[in-house]
C-alpha cells in the first residue's frame, strides 16, 4: 500500500476508483492506521426474509387456486348481483343508518362526555349511569328493546315532536337509529372524555387568564385539540358501526346484509350473495379509511413536524412528479 505515490493515494481517497491500476482494492486504507475517507458500505443479506415471503406467497396462491376451482361457487351469480338494484339500495341504507347513528352517537357522546368531566356530582353520576347501562348490555338486546317499545308504551305523546301509536312511530329505521346511536353515544362519551383529559390543563389556564369564558375555552381551545386524539377513535367506531349495522336485519330493517339475506332465501345462492355483501362492505370501509385520513390531517394542523405522508399521498405525489418531469 505504501507503494502508491501521493497522488494515487489521494485519488483513491476521493473515491475515483478507476484510476487505480492493477488488482489493488479500490478502497484500501491509505495508511497502516486505516484512515481512508470513504469505505463502501455492504448491506447485510436477509435470506430468511426471502424464504418467508416465498412460503406466504405460495400459501396465498393455493388459496386463490382453491377459490377459483370451487365449482360449487357461482362467481357469475356474485357478479350479477353486485350491481343489482335491491343490493345498491341496501348499500345506500347501510350508509344512511351508519351516518345517522354516528351523528346521534357523537352528539350524545359530546354531551355525556362533558357531563362526566363536570364538577357537578349529579351530572357526573347520571352520565356514568348512561355509560354503565348501554355499554354493559348487548347491542342486539338494545335493538330488540327499541323495536318492541310498543309492548310497554302503546302510545307516544311528546308535545311538538311526535304523538300517535308507537307501532307507527318506531319504524325499523328509527329503532335501529335509537339502538345504534344511543349505544354508540355511550362509547363515544368515553372517547371524548379521554380526549378532553389529553389536553394539558395549561391550555385552559392560558385561555382563562386571557379573560375567556369556560364555554369559549372548551369550544375554541380544548375541543379542537381533543379532536386530534378523538378522531382516530371516531374513525374506528365508524368503521365498526358500518359493519355492526348488519344486525339491523334482525329488526327487519333492510340494509345491505338484510337485502342479500332475503335474496339468498329465495335463490339459495348463499355464499355468492354473502360475497356480494362482503365486497360492498370492503368498498365502503376503504372509502371511509381514506376520508378518515384527510379529516385527521385537517385537525392535525399545528401538530405535524416534518409530517409523515400516508401511502396514498406518497403514491399520488410521486406519480404527479413523474408526469411533470415527463411533460418537461
Amino acid at each position: 500500500m505504501r507503494s502508491h505515490d501521493g497522488t494515487g493515494a489521494q485519488k483513491g481517497r476521493s473515491g475515483s476508483t478507476s484510476l487505480i491500476a492493477g488488482g489493488a482494492p479500490p478502497y484500501e486504507p491509505a495508511s497502516a492506521g486505516g484512515r481512508a475517507s470513504t469505505y463502501e458500505i455492504v448491506r447485510r443479506k436477509h435470506p430468511w426474509r426471502f424464504a418467508a415471503a416465498i412460503v406466504v406467497l405460495l400459501l396465498l396462491a393455493l388459496l386463490l387456486y382453491g377459490a377459483a376451482n370451487a365449482h360449487q361457487l357461482h362467481w357469475s351469480v356474485t357478479g350479477h348481483y353486485l350491481f343489482n338494484r335491491a343490493v345498491l339500495v341496501g348499500v345506500l341504507r347501510t350508509l344512511e343508518i351508519t351516518a345517522a347513528a354516528m351523528m346521534l352517537g357523537l352528539a350524545l357522546g359530546v354531551i355525556f362526555g362533558i357531563m362526566r368531566s363536570s364538577h357537578n356530582p349529579v351530572l357526573r353520576g347520571v352520565a356514568w349511569l348512561y355509560v354503565w347501562a348501554f355499554r354493559g348490555t348487548p347491542i342486539i338486546l338494545q335493538l330488540f328493546l327499541w323495536f318492541n317499545l310498543a309492548l310497554i308504551f302503546p302510545r307516544i305523546d311528546i308535545p311538538g315532536i311526535a304523538h300517535g301509536t308507537t307501532v307507527n312511530i318506531i319504524t325499523p329505521f328509527l329503532a335501529a337509529l335509537l339502538g345504534f346511536g344511543i349505544n354508540e353515544g355511550a362509547y363515544m362519551s368515553e372517547i371524548i372524555r379521554g380526549g378532553l383529559l389529553s389536553v394539558p390543563p395549561g391550555q385552559t389556564e392560558a385561555a382563562l387568564s386571557l379573560g375567556a369564558s369556560h364555554a369559549w375555552t372548551t369550544r375554541r381551545i380544548v375541543l379542537p385539540q381533543a379532536f386530534r386524539v378523538i378522531l382516530p377513535a371516531i374513525g374506528n367506531d365508524t368503521l365498526q358501526m358500518l359493519k355492526l349495522t348488519s344486525l339491523a336485519a334482525f329488526i327487519s330493517f333492510n340494509e345491505l346484509f338484510g337485502t342479500t339475506e332475503s335474496i339468498y332465501y329465495a335463490n339459495s345462492e348463499v355464499i355468492e350473495l354473502l360475497l356480494v355483501a362482503g365486497a360492498w362492505y370492503l368498498v365502503a370501509s376503504s372509502v371511509l379509511s381514506v376520508v378518515q385520513y384527510y379529516v385527521e390531517r385537517k385537525f392535525g394542523r399545528g401538530f405535524q413536524r416534518g409530517r409523515q405522508q400516508a401511502l396514498v399521498e406518497r403514491v399520488v405525489l410521486r406519480a404527479m412528479a413523474r408526469l411533470r418531469t415527463r411533460a418537461v
Binding site: 395549561g202 387568564s209 399545528g302
Partner: peptide
C-alpha cells in the same frame, strides 16, 4: 393582569399571529 407561564401554554392549533390576536378579537 397579563400572565406568562413557565411552559408558555401557546395554543398549538393557532399560528403565532393567531395566538396573539385571539384574545383581543374573540374575547374583547
Amino acid at each position: 393582569c397579563g400572565m406568562v407561564f413557565q411552559h408558555f401554554n401557546l395554543f398549538p392549533h393557532f399560528t403565532a399571529l393567531q395566538n396573539v390576536m385571539l384574545g383581543p378579537v374573540e374575547i374583547l
